[in-house]
Simulated assay, not measured.
Amino acid sequence: MDEIDNHFGSCKCGKRHLDIVMSHVLKVMIDKGIKNKKANLRNACVPLVTPGYPINSVPYLPEDSLVILSNEMDKDCAETIVKEVREVKGVLKGDIRKTVGIKDSDSNPHVYELLAGCDLRCDIIQTPYGALGIYKYQHEIHIEFPQAESPKIEILKKALNDFDQPTVLDCTCGPGTLGIASLKAGARKVIFNDIWNPAIETTLINLETNGFPVKLSGSEEELIASGDKFEIYSMDIRELANCLDEKFDICIIDAFPGVDTTEFVEAAGKLGKKVVVI
């Protein structure tokens, strides 16, 4: 462990195996007293590679390609890691078991703490309509690990196949993945909505990134932004019916794990022909 530095384990291309990088991170955590000398890689911290995409083997990492998450981290240790471990671009403090964001207007938001560096990541999401690049500031958007075949995308695909150029209401859009996939699939219109403002800000970025120019509304009305075939709102799903006076073919609800979606489904049922809970 004492031999590990920025050159240890580098291949000819300058990249290092993820396990080597995590060993370097663990060394710093031990040196700073965050972990004891008996600690191992399994309980060191959570590695979040960027860009994230499904692969069959453990990756070799270039510079600034990793954000790490630990519930035990402090600012001094985080700053040292970003300075000394070249692959790490950002360090977060938080518990991966707790979902980042907000459930509804009656709940308090939960975020991770960015201790050092930058936590902007990109996940590459494979869809039948082409790959999507989904960016997120990881301290304020929930973590999802890309898969070769996303179960959420498969559920969406089945719903979209029931209609010809459907109108879609993504009630809890998060960073915009499902709504953008719907646009790529040829939806006639998509409404993006999320009560969590950082999710809406991220959706704006991801629409632009994936080829859908955004125009901000410039007003204090419920409509935040729009573009060709889409509009963006930030409201409690239970209040959407007060400002949307149309019936959508598909209403998507992608709630936090373990959340009772009964009220959400009831609200979406007033707005859509088919409610899809993902």
Rank of each mutant, 00 (worst) to 15 (best):
C173R: 07
P109F: 10
E239T: 05
V82F: 12
R188E: 08
L178R: 02
T99H: 12
P128T: 05
L92S: 01
D194I: 02
F248D: 00
K152P: 06
C13E: 07
E266R: 14
R42S: 14
P51Y: 13
D164L: 04
E231A: 12
C122E: 10
F256S: 06
A199Y: 07
D76V: 13
T262C: 15
G33R: 05
V28C: 01
V88R: 03
G186D: 12
T99W: 09
K35F: 01
T167E: 05
L114Y: 03
N161Q: 13
R121T: 11
I278D: 04
L216E: 12
S107M: 11
Q165Y: 11
I143A: 08
N161L: 10
L204A: 05
R238K: 12
D31K: 02
K247E: 05
N56Q: 15
W196V: 05
A116M: 04
K136C: 14
V46Q: 12
E140G: 11
S105V: 10
N193S: 06
R188T: 08
N197V: 15
N210Q: 00
A44W: 03
L61S: 04
V85A: 08
A181M: 09
D164S: 06
G52F: 13
S105P: 01
E63M: 08
N6V: 13
S107E: 09
D95Q: 04
Y137M: 14
N242R: 08
D164Y: 03
E140P: 09
H24I: 00
D123A: 00
E140K: 14
T202G: 13
E208W: 09
G179D: 02
Y129W: 14
S217K: 11
S234G: 01
V58L: 15
A267T: 09
T202I: 06
A78L: 02
D249R: 00
L114P: 00
D164N: 12
T172K: 06
S10I: 14
C77G: 08
P166D: 01
G130K: 11
H110A: 06
D236Q: 03
G133V: 15
A187Y: 02
T262R: 14
T80P: 06
G117E: 00
V276I: 13
I124K: 01
